[in-house]
Design a binder for these strands. Structure first.
Length: 266
DNA sequence: AATGGGACCTGCGCGC
DNA sequence: TGCGCGCAGGTCCCAT
């Protein structure tokens, strides 16, 4: 499930392999993932253009092109970008003038590709909250103090703070010792500070390790990221807490699997 | 305002 | 063995 660290890893990987290259042909093997414009216009706008710049906003990748348009890619859960491509799983393939291919794969077809005149105008992007790295502790504390919502669903709310998903919300809360059901505004100053620190530390560490390969996530090379070995709670239901040995519990919160230590995160 | 559910998808692992 | 079911999760949308 690509979250901020995975998408950032892909952005950096793509910088090394396709930045400055010219796309000469786009093959759409499954049109479902092309959200706009119509497939014909999509292909047309991506033919004979150079990749000028690659950006990441929250969990979205943006390729700025030489014709002024931009390709936005939201990988959702199972999206992959693989280079060199040419694989059988490809939903869309991008062919470059040097003969190389970038594959876009997506097993569950949830991903969203858009070719836009102005990515900044995309409603979802306009609605994004600040990225964790753009916040000061004071701002973060203020934001939390205004919300009665349970802290874990709040961390995953992209309008509140952007880039954090189910996996990293669990890891950050564990490291900060905060119960995922605790109302945001009820966190103590100390807890807010701990959470702020752990969010930045966990995301940075995950980026350093190339992201977490659970489910389908792979780096652009096709190889896994290395952060899953450092997970402390995610997916560890019933296994002993790495700090106190209490079995890790799984509950459903906001319809999502939520892992925590009932003792360390009381 | 907040919360809960369903929808979108498909492969996998589980129980019977 | 084979089948059906629940689950996985980012985001939107609707209902309460």
């Amino acid at each position: 499930m690509p979250e901020l660290p995975e998408v950032e890893t892909i952005k950096r990987d793509l910088d090394k392999v396709i930045l400055g290259k010219k796309i000469i042909e786009v093959c759409v093997h499954n049109p479902k993932v092309i959200r706009e414009p119509a497939v014909g216009k999509f292909k047309e706008g991506l033919t004979n253009v150079t990749v000028k710049n690659i950006l990441r906003k929250a969990k979205i990748l943006i390729l700025e092109l030489s014709n002024g348009k931009s390709l936005t890619i939201h990988l959702k859960m199972t999206g992959q970008l693989v280079y060199p491509g040419g694989g059988a799983k490809s939903r869309v393939s991008f062919h470059f003038s040097d003969g190389m291919v970038l594959d876009f794969n997506d097993q569950r077809l949830f991903a969203e590709l858009r070719l836009l005149d102005d990515w900044r105008a995309l409603k979802f992007i306009r609605g994004l909250g600040p990225e964790p790295f753009a916040l000061s502790l004071g701002q973060f504390k203020n934001m939390l103090s205004l919300k009665k919502t349970k802290i874990k669903p709040l961390l995953m709310d992209q309008k509140f703070i952007s880039g954090i998903g189910n996996l990293y919300a669990a890891e950050c809360l564990f490291r900060a010792g905060i119960n995922p059901e605790k109302p945001a505004q009820s966190l103590s100053d100390k807890e807010k500070a701990a959470l702020f620190k752990e969010i930045k530390d966990v995301l940075n560490e995950a980026i350093e390790h190339g992201g977490s390969s659970v489910d389908d996530y792979v780096r652009v090379s096709g190889r896994p990221g290395g952060y899953a070995a450092h997970h402390k709670v995610y997916g560890r239901q019933g296994k002993p807490c790495l700090i106190c040995k209490t079995p890790i519990k799984r509950i459903s919160l906001g319809g999502r699997g939520t892992y925590f230590c009932p003792k360390c995160q009381a």
